[in-house]
Design a protein around this nucleic acid. Structure first.
Ligand SMILES: [Zn+2]
Ligand SMILES: [Zn+2]
Ligand SMILES: [Zn+2]
Ligand SMILES: [Zn+2]
Lengths: 168, 168
DNA sequence: CTTGACCCTGTAGCGACTACAGGGTGTGCA
DNA sequence: TGCACACCCTGTAGTCGCTACAGGGTCAAG
């Protein structure tokens, strides 16, 4: 089986297959005289394993570990459980963060209904005022009476949407 | 105000501030004779605006657009609304995807309760069998009777956890 | 006059791909 | 046999939003 055929069978891009091999996730296949990769059923399984784990949101590092556990039959499965549990925790946290984000965005969106000049747009006004230190609908959920100065939403805490590694 | 002071005031890393300047999100500050950046209140506002938008999960490209709308007072705010609506949609989709992921992971986790050898681990067995084409708890939600061969979960469709750009 | 805290530029790295450029191979058809 | 065309190869660079140096310069205090 050549790489293109494997790609078709698995739905994985050819370049991604080569990438997985470079990253030592996929074992190096046999080569024809001209250097073409030839895959067998075992490697088809390997790739499907990787893709399955990826579809569960696992990192390539996690998948590498999982594959190592799979190879080491004696290994206690405690580590597997830990890995999955951590994955669940990670996914859960991210989902919660996004849920909050959606609420914040909806609150902001509610500041503008009709079409009008940008200068008068409630959304833009909210953003500009927030940058000047005023409270904002998005970061002051609803019941907080910090109606003036001195409020700090956590810009620093979550620098980018997906990884918050600063403070737990 | 030197860059370190601005960093402290905003909670933004010094290197990130320089990065925003390189990316033309932050206007270039005045320089002292020795090349030190000196910031004023206006640029403090600019940075806070950026950080506020980032905390709402917006991309730097979106923020650049938003800043352009802010500068162009005549501009109709329709585009702002569109931008926010798209952001809401994106966040919503990602949140839903993560919710599903969590369910899938929990179903998989349920395949192992006690500690034992990896060879007998229900989690690992599930993953290996799925790679061979069997149905799996994680990708066959619960009521589907595809109990044998010929099932395809959508490995190809969502290549990585965060961006599914293939089919909407 | 030295120490140490700050500042500068430029470059490389992260993760998980994706997209070429620039070439080689293999098959079918006239 | 010649040629088109689909496929394969390697290697490098780009994506995004930072982060982390290396290797230097500046400035105020002691
Ligand atoms: Zn508006
Ligand atoms: Zn806000
Ligand atoms: Zn187990
Ligand atoms: Zn599955």
């Amino acid at each position: 089986m050549l790489i293109g055929e494997l790609a078709k069978k698995t739905g994985c891009d050819v370049e991604t297959i080569r990438y997985y091999e470079r990253e030592r996730l996929l074992s190096a296949p046999q080569r024809s005289a001209s250097g073409y990769r030839h895959y067998n059923a075992e490697q088809l399984g390997e790739l499907n394993f990787i893709l399955h784990c990826r579809s569960l949101g696992m990192s390539l590092a996690d998948i590498r570990n999982l594959a190592a556990f799979k190879a080491d039959h004696e290994h206690d499965c405690e580590d597997i459980n830990l890995l999955i549990d951590q994955q669940i925790a990670k996914v859960h946290q991210q989902a919660e963060a996004l849920r909050l984000l959606e609420q914040q965005l909806l609150a902001l969106r509610d500041k503008c209904h009709d079409s009008h000049a940008a200068a008068d747009c409630g959304i833009l006004q909210t953003l500009v005022e927030a940058a000047e230190g005023e409270p904002c609908v998005c970061h002051t959920p609803f019941g907080q009476d910090n109606h003036g100065h001195s409020h700090d939403h956590d810009h620093a805490a979550k620098k980018n949407g997906r990884t918050q590694k600063g403070r737990p």
